[in-house]
Design a binder for these strands. Structure first.
Lengths: 233, 233
DNA sequence: TGTGTTATTATGTCTGCACATAAAAGCATG
DNA sequence: CATGCTTTTATGTGCAGACATAATAACACA
Protein backbone atom coordinates (compact mmCIF):
# COMPACT_ATOMS: atom_id res chain seq x y z
CA UNK A 1 0.00 0.00 0.00
CA UNK A 2 2.95 2.27 0.60
CA UNK A 3 3.90 2.76 -3.02
CA UNK A 4 0.45 3.73 -4.21
CA UNK A 5 -0.12 6.78 -2.11
CA UNK A 6 -1.80 9.78 -3.62
CA UNK A 7 -0.10 12.78 -2.20
CA UNK A 8 0.40 15.19 -5.02
CA UNK A 9 -2.13 16.96 -7.12
CA UNK A 10 -1.23 15.21 -10.34
CA UNK A 11 -1.84 11.87 -8.72
CA UNK A 12 -5.19 13.09 -7.47
CA UNK A 13 -6.03 14.34 -10.93
CA UNK A 14 -5.08 11.01 -12.40
CA UNK A 15 -7.15 9.06 -9.92
CA UNK A 16 -10.20 11.24 -10.51
CA UNK A 17 -9.74 10.89 -14.26
CA UNK A 18 -9.54 7.14 -13.82
CA UNK A 19 -12.76 7.02 -11.84
CA UNK A 20 -14.56 9.08 -14.43
CA UNK A 21 -13.10 7.05 -17.23
CA UNK A 22 -14.07 3.77 -15.63
CA UNK A 23 -17.54 5.11 -14.88
CA UNK A 24 -17.23 4.72 -11.15
CA UNK A 25 -18.42 8.31 -11.25
CA UNK A 26 -20.85 8.76 -14.10
CA UNK A 27 -21.60 11.86 -16.14
CA UNK A 28 -23.84 14.24 -14.26
CA UNK A 29 -23.15 12.55 -10.99
CA UNK A 30 -22.06 14.32 -7.85
CA UNK A 31 -18.63 13.32 -6.59
CA UNK A 32 -17.56 13.41 -2.94
CA UNK A 33 -16.62 16.79 -1.59
CA UNK A 34 -13.09 18.07 -1.29
CA UNK A 35 -12.77 17.42 2.38
CA UNK A 36 -13.82 13.77 2.07
CA UNK A 37 -11.55 13.17 -0.88
CA UNK A 38 -8.68 14.72 1.02
CA UNK A 39 -9.26 12.26 3.83
CA UNK A 40 -9.57 9.35 1.44
CA UNK A 41 -6.41 10.20 -0.45
CA UNK A 42 -4.54 11.15 2.66
CA UNK A 43 -3.57 14.60 1.49
CA UNK A 44 -4.53 18.20 2.18
CA UNK A 45 -7.76 19.67 0.91
CA UNK A 46 -5.75 22.29 -1.00
CA UNK A 47 -4.18 19.49 -2.99
CA UNK A 48 -7.54 18.03 -3.90
CA UNK A 49 -8.73 21.52 -4.76
CA UNK A 50 -5.80 22.04 -7.10
CA UNK A 51 -6.58 18.82 -8.93
CA UNK A 52 -10.32 19.38 -9.20
CA UNK A 53 -9.78 22.93 -10.35
CA UNK A 54 -7.52 21.71 -13.14
CA UNK A 55 -10.07 19.11 -14.17
CA UNK A 56 -12.82 21.68 -14.16
CA UNK A 57 -10.79 23.93 -16.35
CA UNK A 58 -10.26 21.22 -18.89
CA UNK A 59 -13.99 20.78 -18.92
CA UNK A 60 -14.22 17.35 -17.33
CA UNK A 61 -15.90 18.53 -14.14
CA UNK A 62 -18.55 21.10 -13.33
CA UNK A 63 -18.13 22.85 -10.03
CA UNK A 64 -20.44 25.20 -8.22
CA UNK A 65 -20.22 26.56 -4.74
CA UNK A 66 -22.30 24.71 -2.28
CA UNK A 67 -23.82 22.65 -5.07
CA UNK A 68 -20.71 20.52 -5.19
CA UNK A 69 -18.66 19.01 -7.96
CA UNK A 70 -20.12 16.80 -10.63
CA UNK A 71 -18.85 14.99 -13.68
CA UNK A 72 -19.52 17.15 -16.69
CA UNK A 73 -22.41 16.08 -18.85
CA UNK A 74 -20.57 17.12 -21.98
CA UNK A 75 -17.00 16.01 -21.40
CA UNK A 76 -16.02 17.36 -24.77
CA UNK A 77 -15.94 21.03 -24.12
CA UNK A 78 -12.86 23.09 -23.91
CA UNK A 79 -9.52 22.85 -25.60
CA UNK A 80 -6.51 24.99 -25.30
CA UNK A 81 -5.87 25.98 -28.81
CA UNK A 82 -2.60 27.33 -30.07
CA UNK A 83 -3.45 30.25 -32.21
CA UNK A 84 -1.04 29.95 -35.06
CA UNK A 85 1.85 32.38 -34.94
CA UNK A 86 2.62 32.09 -38.59
CA UNK A 87 6.38 32.20 -38.60
CA UNK A 88 6.62 29.64 -35.82
CA UNK A 89 4.09 27.41 -37.44
CA UNK A 90 6.02 27.35 -40.68
CA UNK A 91 9.41 26.85 -39.10
CA UNK A 92 8.11 24.10 -36.84
CA UNK A 93 6.88 22.33 -39.93
CA UNK A 94 10.48 22.20 -41.08
CA UNK A 95 10.14 24.81 -43.82
CA UNK A 96 12.02 27.99 -44.44
CA UNK A 97 9.93 30.99 -43.60
CA UNK A 98 9.55 33.70 -46.18
CA UNK A 99 7.61 36.94 -46.30
CA UNK A 100 6.70 39.27 -49.11
CA UNK A 101 5.00 42.64 -48.93
CA UNK A 102 2.61 43.14 -51.79
CA UNK A 103 0.80 46.36 -51.07
CA UNK A 104 1.02 49.16 -48.57
CA UNK A 105 -0.98 52.35 -48.70
CA UNK A 106 -3.15 54.64 -46.66
CA UNK A 107 -6.60 54.41 -48.11
CA UNK A 108 -10.31 54.41 -47.48
CA UNK A 109 -11.35 51.14 -45.88
CA UNK A 110 -14.40 49.22 -47.04
CA UNK A 111 -17.45 49.55 -44.87
CA UNK A 112 -17.22 46.02 -43.56
CA UNK A 113 -13.84 46.64 -42.03
CA UNK A 114 -14.89 49.95 -40.54
CA UNK A 115 -17.80 48.21 -38.82
CA UNK A 116 -15.57 45.49 -37.58
CA UNK A 117 -13.23 48.05 -36.09
CA UNK A 118 -16.12 50.18 -34.86
CA UNK A 119 -14.81 53.28 -36.59
CA UNK A 120 -17.80 55.48 -37.10
CA UNK A 121 -16.83 58.63 -38.95
CA UNK A 122 -14.90 56.87 -41.73
CA UNK A 123 -11.24 57.75 -41.94
CA UNK A 124 -8.39 56.43 -44.05
CA UNK A 125 -6.51 53.47 -42.68
CA UNK A 126 -3.18 51.88 -43.40
CA UNK A 127 -3.73 48.90 -45.66
CA UNK A 128 -1.11 46.17 -45.85
CA UNK A 129 -1.30 43.09 -48.02
CA UNK A 130 1.38 40.46 -47.76
CA UNK A 131 2.03 36.79 -48.18
CA UNK A 132 3.83 34.34 -45.92
CA UNK A 133 5.78 31.60 -47.62
CA UNK A 134 6.84 28.14 -46.59
CA UNK A 135 9.84 27.18 -48.71
CA UNK A 136 8.82 29.61 -51.46
CA UNK A 137 5.25 28.38 -51.73
CA UNK A 138 2.46 30.65 -50.52
CA UNK A 139 1.19 29.56 -47.15
CA UNK A 140 -1.14 32.29 -46.05
CA UNK A 141 -2.23 35.63 -47.47
CA UNK A 142 -2.58 38.51 -45.04
CA UNK A 143 -5.01 41.35 -45.61
CA UNK A 144 -4.56 43.87 -42.84
CA UNK A 145 -5.92 47.28 -41.90
CA UNK A 146 -4.26 49.37 -39.22
CA UNK A 147 -5.67 52.46 -37.56
CA UNK A 148 -2.86 55.03 -37.66
CA UNK A 149 -4.53 57.20 -35.05
CA UNK A 150 -4.03 54.37 -32.57
CA UNK A 151 -0.56 53.33 -33.73
CA UNK A 152 0.94 56.43 -35.34
CA UNK A 153 4.38 54.91 -35.59
CA UNK A 154 3.03 52.31 -37.98
CA UNK A 155 3.03 54.94 -40.70
CA UNK A 156 6.81 55.09 -40.66
CA UNK A 157 7.32 51.37 -40.27
CA UNK A 158 8.67 49.61 -43.31
CA UNK A 159 6.80 46.37 -43.62
CA UNK A 160 9.10 45.24 -46.38
CA UNK A 161 11.07 42.69 -44.44
CA UNK A 162 9.23 42.24 -41.18
CA UNK A 163 5.61 41.17 -41.17
CA UNK A 164 3.08 43.62 -39.83
CA UNK A 165 2.07 40.89 -37.45
CA UNK A 166 5.44 40.76 -35.76
CA UNK A 167 5.94 44.51 -35.91
CA UNK A 168 2.67 45.09 -34.13
CA UNK A 169 3.46 42.52 -31.49
CA UNK A 170 6.62 44.40 -30.69
CA UNK A 171 5.30 47.92 -30.93
CA UNK A 172 1.82 47.94 -29.48
CA UNK A 173 0.73 47.56 -25.91
CA UNK A 174 -0.77 44.27 -24.92
CA UNK A 175 -4.24 43.93 -26.23
CA UNK A 176 -7.28 41.71 -26.39
CA UNK A 177 -8.55 40.33 -29.60
CA UNK A 178 -11.55 38.68 -31.16
CA UNK A 179 -10.90 35.77 -33.42
CA UNK A 180 -13.26 34.17 -35.87
CA UNK A 181 -12.62 31.01 -37.80
CA UNK A 182 -14.56 30.47 -41.00
CA UNK A 183 -14.51 28.88 -44.38
CA UNK A 184 -14.82 31.19 -47.38
CA UNK A 185 -14.65 30.99 -51.11
CA UNK A 186 -11.33 32.56 -52.05
CA UNK A 187 -11.73 36.06 -53.46
CA UNK A 188 -9.93 36.22 -56.78
CA UNK A 189 -7.35 38.67 -55.47
CA UNK A 190 -6.36 36.33 -52.65
CA UNK A 191 -6.50 33.32 -54.93
CA UNK A 192 -3.98 34.99 -57.18
CA UNK A 193 -1.65 35.69 -54.28
CA UNK A 194 -1.86 32.12 -53.08
CA UNK A 195 -1.60 30.64 -56.54
CA UNK A 196 -4.90 28.85 -56.02
CA UNK A 197 -8.18 28.58 -57.83
CA UNK A 198 -10.59 31.47 -57.24
CA UNK A 199 -13.65 30.33 -55.31
CA UNK A 200 -11.69 27.46 -53.79
CA UNK A 201 -12.61 26.75 -50.17
CA UNK A 202 -10.14 28.47 -47.88
CA UNK A 203 -9.72 28.53 -44.15
CA UNK A 204 -9.98 32.08 -42.87
CA UNK A 205 -8.90 33.48 -39.55
CA UNK A 206 -10.29 36.95 -38.95
CA UNK A 207 -8.76 38.72 -36.03
CA UNK A 208 -9.57 42.13 -34.63
CA UNK A 209 -7.22 43.48 -32.01
CA UNK A 210 -8.24 46.01 -29.39
CA UNK A 211 -6.40 48.45 -27.21
CA UNK A 212 -9.05 48.96 -24.55
CA UNK A 213 -11.99 50.11 -26.65
CA UNK A 214 -10.19 51.11 -29.79
CA UNK A 215 -9.41 48.78 -32.64
CA UNK A 216 -5.72 48.65 -33.41
CA UNK A 217 -5.91 46.40 -36.41
CA UNK A 218 -8.12 43.96 -38.26
CA UNK A 219 -6.55 41.13 -40.22
CA UNK A 220 -7.89 38.48 -42.51
CA UNK A 221 -5.62 35.51 -42.89
CA UNK A 222 -6.49 33.39 -45.90
CA UNK A 223 -4.81 30.03 -45.66
CA UNK A 224 -3.92 28.15 -48.80
CA UNK A 225 -6.49 25.44 -49.57
CA UNK A 226 -5.78 22.21 -47.75
CA UNK A 227 -4.69 23.88 -44.53
CA UNK A 228 -5.72 22.13 -41.34
CA UNK A 229 -5.63 23.59 -37.87
CA UNK A 230 -5.02 20.78 -35.43
CA UNK A 231 -5.72 20.32 -31.74
CA UNK A 232 -6.23 17.51 -29.36
CA UNK A 233 -8.13 17.32 -26.13
CA UNK B 1 -3.49 53.82 0.14
CA UNK B 2 -5.77 51.57 2.10
CA UNK B 3 -8.34 50.96 -0.59
CA UNK B 4 -5.88 49.96 -3.30
CA UNK B 5 -4.32 46.99 -1.64
CA UNK B 6 -3.49 43.97 -3.70
CA UNK B 7 -4.30 41.01 -1.55
CA UNK B 8 -6.02 38.52 -3.76
CA UNK B 9 -4.74 36.70 -6.77
CA UNK B 10 -7.08 38.36 -9.23
CA UNK B 11 -5.84 41.75 -8.15
CA UNK B 12 -2.28 40.58 -8.61
CA UNK B 13 -3.16 39.23 -12.02
CA UNK B 14 -4.74 42.53 -12.95
CA UNK B 15 -1.77 44.54 -11.80
CA UNK B 16 0.66 42.35 -13.71
CA UNK B 17 -1.51 42.60 -16.79
CA UNK B 18 -1.53 46.36 -16.40
CA UNK B 19 2.23 46.53 -16.20
CA UNK B 20 2.64 44.41 -19.29
CA UNK B 21 -0.01 46.35 -21.11
CA UNK B 22 1.55 49.67 -20.26
CA UNK B 23 4.97 48.35 -21.20
CA UNK B 24 6.45 48.84 -17.79
CA UNK B 25 7.51 45.27 -18.34
CA UNK B 26 8.33 44.77 -22.00
CA UNK B 27 8.05 41.62 -24.08
CA UNK B 28 10.94 39.28 -23.45
CA UNK B 29 11.88 41.05 -20.26
CA UNK B 30 12.39 39.35 -16.94
CA UNK B 31 9.98 40.39 -14.22
CA UNK B 32 10.77 40.41 -10.50
CA UNK B 33 10.63 37.06 -8.79
CA UNK B 34 7.68 35.80 -6.82
CA UNK B 35 9.14 36.56 -3.42
CA UNK B 36 9.85 40.18 -4.29
CA UNK B 37 6.45 40.70 -5.83
CA UNK B 38 4.85 39.19 -2.75
CA UNK B 39 6.64 41.74 -0.60
CA UNK B 40 5.75 44.59 -2.93
CA UNK B 41 2.08 43.66 -3.07
CA UNK B 42 1.91 42.79 0.58
CA UNK B 43 0.55 39.30 0.09
CA UNK B 44 1.79 35.73 0.34
CA UNK B 45 4.04 34.24 -2.28
CA UNK B 46 1.44 31.56 -2.96
CA UNK B 47 -0.94 34.27 -4.02
CA UNK B 48 1.55 35.74 -6.46
CA UNK B 49 2.24 32.23 -7.70
CA UNK B 50 -1.43 31.63 -8.37
CA UNK B 51 -1.68 34.80 -10.42
CA UNK B 52 1.50 34.25 -12.42
CA UNK B 53 0.53 30.68 -13.08
CA UNK B 54 -2.79 31.80 -14.50
CA UNK B 55 -1.08 34.38 -16.68
CA UNK B 56 1.39 31.83 -17.91
CA UNK B 57 -1.41 29.51 -18.84
CA UNK B 58 -3.10 32.15 -20.89
CA UNK B 59 0.17 32.61 -22.70
CA UNK B 60 1.07 36.06 -21.48
CA UNK B 61 4.06 34.97 -19.44
CA UNK B 62 6.80 32.43 -19.93
CA UNK B 63 8.05 30.76 -16.81
CA UNK B 64 10.95 28.43 -16.23
CA UNK B 65 12.38 27.18 -13.04
CA UNK B 66 15.35 29.11 -11.89
CA UNK B 67 15.37 31.10 -15.12
CA UNK B 68 12.55 33.21 -13.79
CA UNK B 69 9.41 34.66 -15.31
CA UNK B 70 9.39 36.79 -18.41
CA UNK B 71 6.84 38.53 -20.53
CA UNK B 72 6.03 36.29 -23.48
CA UNK B 73 7.55 37.33 -26.78
CA UNK B 74 4.48 36.29 -28.69
CA UNK B 75 1.57 37.41 -26.56
CA UNK B 76 -0.82 35.98 -29.07
CA UNK B 77 -0.47 32.33 -28.42
CA UNK B 78 -2.99 30.26 -26.65
CA UNK B 79 -6.71 30.52 -26.40
CA UNK B 80 -9.12 28.39 -24.54
CA UNK B 81 -11.53 27.41 -27.19
CA UNK B 82 -14.96 26.06 -26.57
CA UNK B 83 -15.31 23.14 -28.84
CA UNK B 84 -18.86 23.44 -30.01
CA UNK B 85 -21.26 21.04 -28.37
CA UNK B 86 -23.83 21.32 -31.05
CA UNK B 87 -27.03 21.25 -29.06
CA UNK B 88 -25.76 23.82 -26.59
CA UNK B 89 -24.46 26.03 -29.31
CA UNK B 90 -27.81 26.10 -31.04
CA UNK B 91 -29.83 26.61 -27.91
CA UNK B 92 -27.55 29.36 -26.68
CA UNK B 93 -28.14 31.11 -29.97
CA UNK B 94 -31.82 31.23 -29.04
CA UNK B 95 -32.97 28.63 -31.53
CA UNK B 96 -34.91 25.45 -31.04
CA UNK B 97 -32.68 22.45 -31.43
CA UNK B 98 -33.71 19.72 -33.79
CA UNK B 99 -32.15 16.49 -34.89
CA UNK B 100 -32.89 14.14 -37.74
CA UNK B 101 -31.35 10.77 -38.47
CA UNK B 102 -30.83 10.25 -42.18
CA UNK B 103 -28.93 7.02 -42.48
CA UNK B 104 -27.80 4.22 -40.25
CA UNK B 105 -26.16 1.01 -41.39
CA UNK B 106 -23.25 -1.27 -40.80
CA UNK B 107 -21.08 -1.08 -43.85
CA UNK B 108 -17.60 -1.11 -45.25
CA UNK B 109 -15.87 2.18 -44.49
CA UNK B 110 -13.87 4.06 -47.11
CA UNK B 111 -10.13 3.73 -46.86
CA UNK B 112 -9.63 7.28 -45.68
CA UNK B 113 -11.70 6.70 -42.57
CA UNK B 114 -10.03 3.38 -41.84
CA UNK B 115 -6.67 5.10 -41.93
CA UNK B 116 -7.88 7.85 -39.72
CA UNK B 117 -9.10 5.32 -37.20
CA UNK B 118 -5.98 3.18 -37.65
CA UNK B 119 -8.01 0.08 -38.39
CA UNK B 120 -5.72 -2.16 -40.36
CA UNK B 121 -7.56 -5.29 -41.43
CA UNK B 122 -10.66 -3.56 -42.80
CA UNK B 123 -13.89 -4.43 -41.02
CA UNK B 124 -17.41 -3.11 -41.32
CA UNK B 125 -18.29 -0.11 -39.19
CA UNK B 126 -21.50 1.50 -38.06
CA UNK B 127 -22.21 4.47 -40.28
CA UNK B 128 -24.53 7.21 -39.08
CA UNK B 129 -25.51 10.28 -41.03
CA UNK B 130 -27.65 12.94 -39.42
CA UNK B 131 -28.41 16.60 -39.45
CA UNK B 132 -28.74 19.08 -36.59
CA UNK B 133 -31.30 21.81 -37.01
CA UNK B 134 -31.64 25.28 -35.61
CA UNK B 135 -35.31 26.27 -35.82
CA UNK B 136 -35.91 23.80 -38.66
CA UNK B 137 -33.03 25.01 -40.81
CA UNK B 138 -30.03 22.73 -41.23
CA UNK B 139 -27.15 23.84 -39.07
CA UNK B 140 -24.60 21.08 -39.35
CA UNK B 141 -24.42 17.74 -41.10
CA UNK B 142 -22.85 14.88 -39.22
CA UNK B 143 -21.10 12.01 -40.96
CA UNK B 144 -19.99 9.51 -38.38
CA UNK B 145 -18.34 6.08 -38.28
CA UNK B 146 -18.36 4.01 -35.11
CA UNK B 147 -16.30 0.93 -34.42
CA UNK B 148 -18.74 -1.63 -33.00
CA UNK B 149 -15.94 -3.79 -31.64
CA UNK B 150 -15.04 -0.94 -29.30
CA UNK B 151 -18.60 0.10 -28.45
CA UNK B 152 -20.73 -3.01 -29.01
CA UNK B 153 -23.79 -1.48 -27.41
CA UNK B 154 -23.89 1.12 -30.16
CA UNK B 155 -25.35 -1.53 -32.46
CA UNK B 156 -28.52 -1.66 -30.43
CA UNK B 157 -28.76 2.07 -29.84
CA UNK B 158 -31.50 3.82 -31.73
CA UNK B 159 -30.06 7.04 -33.00
CA UNK B 160 -33.46 8.18 -34.14
CA UNK B 161 -34.08 10.75 -31.46
CA UNK B 162 -30.82 11.20 -29.67
CA UNK B 163 -27.76 12.26 -31.60
CA UNK B 164 -24.91 9.79 -31.78
CA UNK B 165 -22.80 12.53 -30.32
CA UNK B 166 -24.77 12.67 -27.10
CA UNK B 167 -25.27 8.94 -26.94
CA UNK B 168 -21.56 8.33 -27.17
CA UNK B 169 -20.82 10.94 -24.54
CA UNK B 170 -23.08 9.08 -22.17
CA UNK B 171 -22.08 5.55 -23.05
CA UNK B 172 -18.37 5.55 -23.63
CA UNK B 173 -15.59 5.97 -21.13
CA UNK B 174 -13.75 9.22 -21.11
CA UNK B 175 -11.50 9.54 -24.08
CA UNK B 176 -9.01 11.72 -25.86
CA UNK B 177 -9.61 13.07 -29.25
CA UNK B 178 -7.90 14.70 -32.17
CA UNK B 179 -9.63 17.61 -33.76
CA UNK B 180 -8.93 19.20 -37.09
CA UNK B 181 -10.50 22.36 -38.40
CA UNK B 182 -10.53 22.89 -42.14
CA UNK B 183 -12.35 24.46 -45.00
CA UNK B 184 -13.67 22.15 -47.68
CA UNK B 185 -15.79 22.32 -50.77
CA UNK B 186 -19.11 20.77 -49.80
CA UNK B 187 -19.51 17.25 -51.19
CA UNK B 188 -22.78 17.10 -53.07
CA UNK B 189 -24.27 14.66 -50.57
CA UNK B 190 -23.66 17.02 -47.67
CA UNK B 191 -24.73 20.02 -49.71
CA UNK B 192 -28.05 18.34 -50.27
CA UNK B 193 -28.50 17.67 -46.58
CA UNK B 194 -27.69 21.23 -45.69
CA UNK B 195 -29.73 22.70 -48.49
CA UNK B 196 -26.68 24.49 -49.81
CA UNK B 197 -24.82 24.74 -53.09
CA UNK B 198 -22.49 21.85 -53.83
CA UNK B 199 -18.86 22.96 -53.80
CA UNK B 200 -19.70 25.85 -51.50
CA UNK B 201 -17.02 26.58 -48.92
CA UNK B 202 -17.92 24.88 -45.65
CA UNK B 203 -16.30 24.82 -42.26
CA UNK B 204 -15.42 21.28 -41.32
CA UNK B 205 -14.58 19.88 -37.93
CA UNK B 206 -13.08 16.42 -38.14
CA UNK B 207 -12.84 14.66 -34.83
CA UNK B 208 -11.42 11.25 -34.07
CA UNK B 209 -12.01 9.92 -30.58
CA UNK B 210 -9.77 7.39 -28.88
CA UNK B 211 -10.20 4.99 -26.05
CA UNK B 212 -6.55 4.51 -25.19
CA UNK B 213 -5.15 3.26 -28.48
CA UNK B 214 -8.36 2.27 -30.22
CA UNK B 215 -10.51 4.60 -32.25
CA UNK B 216 -14.05 4.77 -30.95
CA UNK B 217 -15.47 6.99 -33.62
CA UNK B 218 -14.57 9.40 -36.37
CA UNK B 219 -16.92 12.26 -37.21
CA UNK B 220 -16.98 14.88 -39.88
CA UNK B 221 -19.14 17.86 -39.02
CA UNK B 222 -19.97 19.97 -42.04
CA UNK B 223 -21.27 23.34 -40.96
CA UNK B 224 -23.67 25.21 -43.17
CA UNK B 225 -21.91 27.90 -45.20
CA UNK B 226 -21.55 31.13 -43.27
CA UNK B 227 -20.78 29.49 -39.96
CA UNK B 228 -18.22 31.24 -37.78
CA UNK B 229 -16.47 29.79 -34.80
CA UNK B 230 -15.68 32.59 -32.38
CA UNK B 231 -13.15 33.08 -29.62
CA UNK B 232 -11.47 35.89 -27.88
CA UNK B 233 -8.18 36.12 -26.12
C1' DT C 1 -49.59 27.93 0.24
C1' DG C 2 -46.27 31.09 -0.90
C1' DT C 3 -42.56 34.03 0.55
C1' DG C 4 -38.86 36.04 2.90
C1' DT C 5 -35.25 35.08 6.35
C1' DT C 6 -31.74 32.22 8.37
C1' DA C 7 -28.71 28.31 8.84
C1' DT C 8 -25.87 25.18 6.63
C1' DT C 9 -22.54 23.60 3.54
C1' DA C 10 -19.20 23.13 -0.34
C1' DT C 11 -16.15 25.55 -2.84
C1' DG C 12 -12.90 29.68 -3.15
C1' DT C 13 -9.08 31.79 -1.48
C1' DC C 14 -5.38 33.60 1.75
C1' DT C 15 -1.54 32.92 4.96
C1' DG C 16 2.90 31.22 6.42
C1' DC C 17 5.80 27.82 6.37
C1' DA C 18 8.56 23.91 4.45
C1' DC C 19 10.80 21.13 1.24
C1' DA C 20 11.40 19.49 -3.83
C1' DT C 21 13.36 20.22 -8.19
C1' DA C 22 15.22 22.15 -12.34
C1' DA C 23 18.49 24.92 -14.27
C1' DA C 24 21.95 28.43 -14.44
C1' DA C 25 26.29 29.94 -12.79
C1' DG C 26 30.44 29.29 -10.62
C1' DC C 27 34.29 26.40 -9.43
C1' DA C 28 37.60 22.84 -9.63
C1' DT C 29 40.04 19.52 -11.92
C1' DG C 30 42.16 16.94 -15.62
C1' DC D 1 40.41 24.85 -22.39
C1' DA D 2 36.94 21.59 -21.90
C1' DT D 3 34.38 18.86 -18.67
C1' DG D 4 31.97 17.64 -14.74
C1' DC D 5 30.70 18.62 -9.92
C1' DT D 6 28.64 21.83 -6.57
C1' DT D 7 26.25 25.79 -5.16
C1' DT D 8 22.71 28.96 -5.65
C1' DT D 9 18.31 30.45 -6.86
C1' DA D 10 13.54 30.77 -8.70
C1' DT D 11 9.71 28.25 -9.42
C1' DG D 12 6.79 24.09 -8.11
C1' DT D 13 4.35 21.93 -4.80
C1' DG D 14 2.94 20.35 -0.21
C1' DC D 15 0.55 21.15 4.49
C1' DA D 16 -2.63 22.91 8.11
C1' DG D 17 -5.68 26.16 9.41
C1' DA D 18 -8.66 30.09 8.79
C1' DC D 19 -12.08 32.98 6.86
C1' DA D 20 -15.03 34.46 2.62
C1' DT D 21 -18.74 33.70 -0.35
C1' DA D 22 -22.40 31.76 -2.85
C1' DA D 23 -26.13 28.92 -3.12
C1' DT D 24 -29.07 25.48 -1.43
C1' DA D 25 -32.05 23.87 2.15
C1' DA D 26 -34.77 24.52 6.09
C1' DC D 27 -37.68 27.24 8.64
C1' DA D 28 -40.97 30.63 10.20
C1' DC D 29 -44.52 33.55 9.29
C1' DA D 30 -48.31 35.81 6.95
Amino acid sequence: MAGSEINNWRAVEGEVRRRIHSRIWKPGELIPNEADLAIEFGCARATVNRALRALAQSGLLDRRRKAGTRVALHPVGKAVLDIPVIRQEIEEGGFRYGYRLLHRATEQAPEGKLNRMRISPPRPLLHVVAVHLADQTPYVAEDRWIDPTVVPTALSAPFATISANEWLLQHTPYTRSDIDFTAVALPSEMAQILGAEPQAAAFLIARTTWDSERAVTAVDLYYAPGYRMKTRL
